[in-house]
């Protein structure tokens, strides 16, 4: 009880702190300008604080990472639960989960050394790009998405699958028409957690995204995310600049809360529709 309370109070304190530090500058610049302006010149004589490019950068990278991480993760989970011998699963699943233990800076390093030159050579542009960040984050999401989806699929009562097979459905039809639906809420949780990882990841992204202060127009463009903006500039910021970085944190916080709430509401709705709650 006490432990749970201390965790919740830590959350409350952090929330209060970043809002207190960030809100004044947001009010001064104006919420609309802060969010929708393209100009981020925090150190000019007449500084301007517009984080629109970073918001777009974060959304683009997260969306890209979701496409890669969720599709690969789902595919892994389906193969592991439906088409692998249980003994193979008991080796492969921990191996995939081990990916989560690799420090993010190592992912970033591999991205810079291998991925970025490949993109530069074969697809053009700088190499440092939204695409590189999406790929790195997609891989980083894999263990979360895969392992939670595997658990969700394994928790589906066997009788559902049997019922489908007994009607003459193929294994593949059974998987995508019954099992994935029955495991829907668990898969949703996997996606939410994966997404949280993608939005919040900082180090690996800084290393491969190019940190360019412009709204990206293609996946080969460099960009900057909300998290990397904070991490890159916090070291030398002061005064209003520092406040603006906290305000960036507030925006990040609100986005993550909104996404989680929406996803939660969606999965509840889904459960009710299936009659499982």
């Amino acid at each position: 009880m006490l432990v749970a309370f201390s965790a919740v109070s830590a959350l409350a304190l952090i929330t209060a702190f970043i809002f207190r530090a960030g809100l004044p500058i947001m009010m001064k610049v104006g919420l609309g300008d802060f969010i929708f302006s393209n100009e981020w010149r925090p150190t000019d004589a007449s500084p301007s604080f517009g984080i629109f490019p970073m918001i777009m950068g974060s959304l683009a990278v997260t969306a890209g990472a979701m496409v890669i991480g969720v599709s690969l993760g789902l595919a892994c989970a389906i193969v592991l639960t439906q088409f692998c011998h249980p003994r193979a699963v008991s080796v492969l699943k921990p191996a995939i989960e081990l990916l989560a233990g690799i420090p993010s800076v190592v992912f970033g390093f591999i991205g810079v050394v291998i991925l970025v030159p490949l993109i530069r050579q074969y697809l053009g542009g700088w190499g440092l790009s939204v695409l590189a960040a999406s790929l790195v984050l997609g891989i980083m999401m894999l263990p979360t998405v895969t392992s939670i989806t595997v658990d969700a699929l394994q928790a589906v009562p066997r009788s559902y699958g049997d019922g489908s097979i007994a009607l003459g459905a193929t294994k593949w039809q059974t998987t995508h028409m019954v099992l994935l639906k029955a495991a829907g809420s668990g898969i949703m949780a996997a996606v939410i957690l994966g997404m949280g990882r993608a939005i919040g990841e900082t180090m690996a992204v800084i290393m491969v995204i190019g940190n360019w202060l412009d709204v990206p127009h293609s996946i080969l463009d460099p960009a900057r995310t909300l998290t990397s903006n904070i991490a890159l500039e916090m070291g030398y910021s002061a005064g209003e600049h520092r406040q603006a970085l906290f305000a960036t944190g507030v925006v990040l916080f609100v986005i993550i809360m909104a996404v989680n709430t929406a996803a939660l509401a969606f999965s509840r709705h889904h459960l009710r529709k299936a009659g499982m709650r």
Binding site: Y160, L167, V178, K181
Partner: peptide, 17 residues
């Protein structure tokens, strides 16, 4: 062991498959 779908989709499942 009906599927976690609605009544219609349960019955229509076999024909769809």
């Amino acid at each position: 062991n009906p599927f976690p779908l609605n009544v219609f989709d349960n019955v229509a499942y076999g024909p769809r498959v």
